[in-house]
Design a protein around this nucleic acid. Structure first.
Lengths: 137, 137
DNA sequence: TCTGTATAGTTTGATTATCAAACTAAAACG
DNA sequence: CGTTTTAGTTTGATAATCAAACTATACAGA
């Protein structure tokens, strides 16, 4: 096994997850970008526009219009930042949190499907290896 | 180790690869979607609009304008399909192939970085596990 | 060989995502 | 205080995307 093969396998897996995500998100009625925002907000609970934009790799200008729409859909809300008058704190509404939980559930189901043939030891081994890959970033 | 943790690890890895890809592609002057098209064409050599659209998960309408632009940039070209007068066969130009090779090289470098601490046996194990994950899709 | 139906690709009209740059208001610094 | 930095919004432009209408070719049945 060479790392060239590994590179190919990673690309294939990435592409398949990508398609899967696209399909799943489409059914929810959100765009991939919107769902991504919901996921990050859900994961970090409350954060500023600036922080969210940085985590998503987009500009605050792009984020402003995205949050505008998500706010219209009642999935997120802007709250005054307690100490910084220029900032908002963005959080999920109850409905937004439902989307978030539901989507996390989908990921969980996918993972269970993908590892259906793995025993406990193999799952641990895979987990350790993924952690090691993540550390190298 | 539970599969909930595994799900989280996969998401994190996916997101990091996603950001990495975004950064790398930006430097090339292509958009992520355009690079994705180049990758698929490069990988499959020659294919029809319909096939390419299916592989990318977009409509042929979207693809038409995308290929128009890539053709303007001299990275891909439409050729008459030998037997079907309605179809084109899309392929990379020499310059397009350079982009493709260069990007594959980037992926290779990333993989090498990520697996820098893995020995041969671990690389084989990881490879086998990725193959098993792929089979479940 | 016509004729009707299916298929491949393009065009059109609308929406969303995106950026860079200009702008507004508040914070921070000195 | 006044100046500079920072957070977020707005604006203007371009690209990605879809669904639906459209064009031209292929195919299948009579």
């Amino acid at each position: 096994m060479k790392t060239e093969d590994l590179s190919q396998l990673i690309i294939e897996l990435y592409d398949k997850i990508s398609s899967w995500e696209h399909e799943v998100v489409k059914k929810s009625g959100l765009s991939p970008a919107q769902m991504h925002a919901v996921e990050i907000i859900g994961h970090h609970q409350k954060l500023r526009m600036k922080e969210l934009a940085a985590k998503m790799g987009i500009t605050t200008g792009t984020l402003t219009v995205m949050i505008d729409r998500l706010e219209q859909m009642k999935l997120v809300e802007r709250q005054q930042h307690p100490t910084d008058g220029r900032s908002y704190v963005i959080g999920l509404t109850a409905q937004g949190d439902e989307y978030f939980q539901e989507h996390a559930q989908m990921h969980q189901l996918l993972t269970d499907d993908l590892t259906a043939t793995f025993n406990d030891e193999e799952i641990s081994t895979l987990g350790l290896m993924l952690r090691r890959l993540l550390q190298q970033f």
